[in-house]
Amino acid sequence: MNNFSYTPAATAKEAIGIRKDKKDAAYIAGGTTLLDLMKANVEQHPQLVDINMLPFKGIQETTDGLRIGSMERMSDVGENALVVQQYPVISEALLLSASPQLRNMASIGGNLLQRTRCGYFRDPAFPCNKRNPGSGCPAQQGDNRNLAILGTSEACIATNPGDLAVALVALDAVVTLENAKGKQRRVPLLDFHLLPGTTPQRETVIEPDELIVAVTVPAAAHARKSHYVKVRDRASYAFALVSAAVGLDVQGGQIRSARIALGGVGTKPWRAQEAEKLLIGKPATEENFRAAAAAAVRGAQPREHNRFKVEMVQKTVVQALQELMA
């Protein structure tokens, strides 16, 4: 790990001000992604700005939903009674993430910014368009078992990791950002992460002078009845091979609204809106779930080692919807 200076920021203005002037400085909250990548020499920063004392706290019920401060920890949100009862998919996704130790450390804001687990990205010995733009993507022809089948490009097929963002994107979450002038803007999580295209180094719309302040989630029937299923190589403490976040509002035997998002398969948290549309007005049957799941992977471009994900993620969607209705 390169040496760096360390500045504990007392205010958001101070934190953002430092990063505005020194764009290769980094914020540190939980540190679980940042220090991991710095130790691996994937990231180098001359200065770390500690934002743990910023007041972006609170897990609150608002007039139209849920507001989570960006500095809340994954463990606290995952076991929060309001989240457990009204937004179970968020709680489940969080508690199936990482380990209890990491969840005690990692912040919600940091979690949304965590970087891919692509082995080529994480090893500076290899070329990587995300880490070193223009250097190439060995994953296209290399070991791509864990990589994406949706939203890929010639430049990058890295999977967006993590579970929380999948649950949040399913529930139409909105990210609130604040800049150096103290001005806030709200970005739907659906538009927050970017497809790799020809610029895989740019992963989100967040500007260098912006900080994540909070995430808000609208209350909805499909949020109250929601569920997360994660499939891993081992029973716990592993990144998803595939995962599904689902929510349904079923009234009088008919689906009134549906939410489906996929993890482990997309270059960004993958919302399957075409699949959702297929379910509207229909009964919650396995046949309809299968049709929706098939629509969710339409256009998938698997590589040599990740073809299994095309079928596995469909089965995971069906399983999640069936468990939700059970």
Binding site: I28, G30, G31, T32, L35, L48, S99, Q101, L102, N104
Partner: peptide, 8 residues
């Protein structure tokens, strides 16, 4: 409980 390797 935390991982002391990932905090400064």
């Amino acid at each position: 409980r935390i991982n002391s390797c990932l905090t400064l």
